[in-house]
Amino acid sequence: MSGYFDELTARLREAGVPASRIAVTVDDLRAYLADSGGDPEEEFGPAAAFAEQLAATAGQAAGEAASGERWTWTADIFTDQQRLNEFGEQGWEVQGIDRLGRFVCTRSEEHPQCWEYRREVVPPADRDALTERLAPDGWEPCGTWFFYAYYKRPKAALVGPEAEIASPPPQPGRRIFFSPALYGFVVVAFAAAVALGLLSLGMLDRVDDDDPIASTLFGMLVGAISAILVMGAIGGAAVLVGRRRRRR
């Protein structure tokens, strides 16, 4: 696999693609293969031909960015969909999500239009099926982050020419949008971690210090419980927020 990506990197560099974009592209492709378990040549075709395709796409994206505005921002799971639709009404179109989980957006200077967004919680193996199910309604994927899948569609598909924005507002001055719910979640998670740590210390006193196996197993158990609690809380929060928004 490394040989394929070495050749792909070399071809992209020869085509004049910026090194930063090459690094992001290769990292994304590696992550995709890690999820799918596929072979790079079977998934993407020969490295030389795939590099030409990627270079052409990069050139087109660079042209679009040059003729319009570009803005990168982030939000937590409690407010991201709300913010996406808020900024979509201002003409911001999500082109993807970078490695830091930030939304990479562009906005046309000549003909800005409104965009609509939705977020789904879905395992990587089920994303293709979900995308096919949403496609007839005009939704197209615009980025993924762990088990979150984001979709966009132009509002013109629903309201026609009224979706075009005559005077879009200035680009927001902020890039980070965290909600009070996130800070509350952090406080609760920290309190739970402290409580679990104190409970673990109390139980550790009962473990035989001369039995290293028992101590190791106990440590592994505490670590597993902590991980399950944290991941369960994050996943549960995402599901609850998503359901509440769909009911609105």
Rank of each mutant, 00 (worst) to 15 (best):
1 M>W: 07
3 G>N: 13
4 Y>V: 12
5 F>C: 10
6 D>Q: 15
7 E>T: 14
12 L>H: 11
12 L>W: 07
14 E>F: 11
19 A>F: 13
20 S>A: 15
27 D>G: 14
29 L>M: 15
40 P>I: 13
47 A>N: 12
47 A>L: 12
48 A>Y: 11
51 A>W: 06
52 E>S: 14
56 A>C: 04
63 G>A: 12
64 E>I: 10
69 E>C: 00
73 W>Y: 07
74 T>P: 00
75 A>R: 04
82 Q>L: 08
82 Q>Y: 09
83 R>A: 00
87 F>M: 11
88 G>Y: 04
90 Q>E: 12
99 R>F: 03
102 R>F: 05
105 C>H: 06
106 T>A: 04
112 P>G: 03
113 Q>N: 04
119 R>H: 07
119 R>W: 02
127 R>C: 06
128 D>F: 06
128 D>P: 00
130 L>D: 08
133 R>W: 04
133 R>L: 12
135 A>Q: 09
137 D>P: 00
142 C>V: 04
144 T>M: 02
145 W>Q: 08
148 Y>A: 07
154 P>M: 02
156 A>I: 04
158 L>W: 09
164 E>N: 11
166 A>V: 05
167 S>V: 08
171 Q>M: 06
172 P>H: 01
172 P>L: 01
174 R>E: 14
179 S>H: 09
180 P>K: 01
180 P>S: 00
185 F>M: 05
197 G>H: 12
199 L>A: 13
207 V>D: 02
210 D>L: 00
211 D>M: 03
213 I>T: 14
215 S>E: 10
219 G>K: 06
224 A>L: 15
231 M>Q: 13
232 G>I: 13
239 V>G: 02
240 L>W: 15
241 V>P: 01
243 R>H: 14
244 R>S: 15
247 R>W: 13
